[in-house]
């Protein structure tokens, strides 16, 4: 923690970055995002198993970007990112939303984060994405802290559910999602927390014509949730923020993860892993598998 704070302080003092986006402790088992601009405040920064948020979501926010621009140069933004959050940063760079040289990535050797705030981090309270995490070390970083530790063992219940849904008939599957989407209240928290839902104007907000009914009845909810799943296919990095934010507990990651599995199987593509490869949806290869065309 001390090194993290000193590093952040130095970045701000030397004027290398305009802000450090990081975590601060709220209570023993809860943190919250914090945007530090004053070197004095860097002593609030923490990193631990309760750093659930994916802070990459802030990198595309106009107000924060504007604050980086000084009269004669653009300062960098420093972001505290778990190795999996780095995937989101990479995806944003791949999609030309930010430039690598504008971002200073502070990352960690990570052994997982809690599923819920307020409960002890353990095999019973570990975020589902951490169970099969393959990148406990960040793929890209400018500074790395923390020691390597063992990740608590837990069973991958979400994967079991995905397989269970795959075994269902079309009708059963439809019913399953109907029951889930029925709960949606269209608060759009899933969209708000998603680093890759950065569109200035989301298709669901367009009114002339209105493509997606804004009412949260079954048709409107299906349209919204399916469009979001499609728009994130091959792009979702699996951070799980949408599911964590959803106030009515819709298991959104079942959809997103299933789409990610499909992208990997069909195109050997995993989102946000490499700055050298073009994005899946943004590139065309005539040898691409075309089974998926509708």
């Amino acid at each position: 923690m001390k090194e993290l704070r000193e590093h952040a302080k130095e970045l701000l003092e030397k004027g290398e970055v305009s802000a450090v986006i990081g975590y601060s402790q709220v209570s023993e088992k809860r943190t919250k995002p914090i945007i530090v601009t004053d070197p004095q405040d860097t002593d609030q920064l923490v990193f631990n198993e309760y750093c659930l948020n994916n802070l990459a979501v802030y990198l595309t926010k106009a107000r924060i970007k504007v604050s980086c621009r000084t009269k004669d140069k653009t300062l960098k933004l420093a972001v505290t990112a778990k190795p999996c959050d780095v995937h989101s940063v990479v995806a944003l760079i791949q999609e030309n939303q930010i430039h690598r040289e504008d971002i200073h990535i502070i990352s960690f050797n990570c052994h997982g984060v809690a599923k819920d705030f307020g409960f002890e981090f353990s095999g019973d309270n570990i975020a589902s994405k951490c169970i099969n995490c393959e990148t406990h070390k960040p793929l890209y970083f400018d500074k790395i802290f923390g020691e390597e530790k063992e990740t608590p063992k837990a069973s991958d219940d979400a994967m079991e559910r995905i397989q269970e849904i795959e075994r269902m008939s079309h009708q059963e599957r439809f019913e399953f999602f109907k029951n889930e989407f029925d709960k949606c209240i269209k608060c759009y928290a899933c969209r708000a927390v998603c680093p890759l839902c950065y569109c200035q104007r989301c298709i669901t907000d367009k009114t002339i014509p209105r493509w997606i009914e804004s009412s949260s009845h079954m048709r409107g909810n299906f349209a919204w949730n399916i469009v979001r799943a499609f728009h994130l296919s091959g792009r979702c990095t699996g951070c799980g923020e949408c599911e964590r934010a959803c106030p009515v507990d819709i298991p959104l990651s079942l959809l997103n993860r299933r789409m990610a599995i499909k992208a990997k199987k069909s195109f050997s593509y995993v989102s946000g892993r490499s700055l050298e490869t073009p994005t899946l949806v943004g590139s065309f290869n005539e040898k691409d598998n075309d089974e998926l065309f509708m």
Binding site: K32, C187, Y188, A245, P247
Partner: peptide, 27 residues
Amino acid sequence: GIGNLCLSCAKCAFVCPVCHCFDIVDE
């Protein structure tokens, strides 16, 4: 300061027992 952190969803309003804003749309 708060505005920079807040993500502009409506979760806070929709879970609130007394928030009552509504929109009228024709379908």
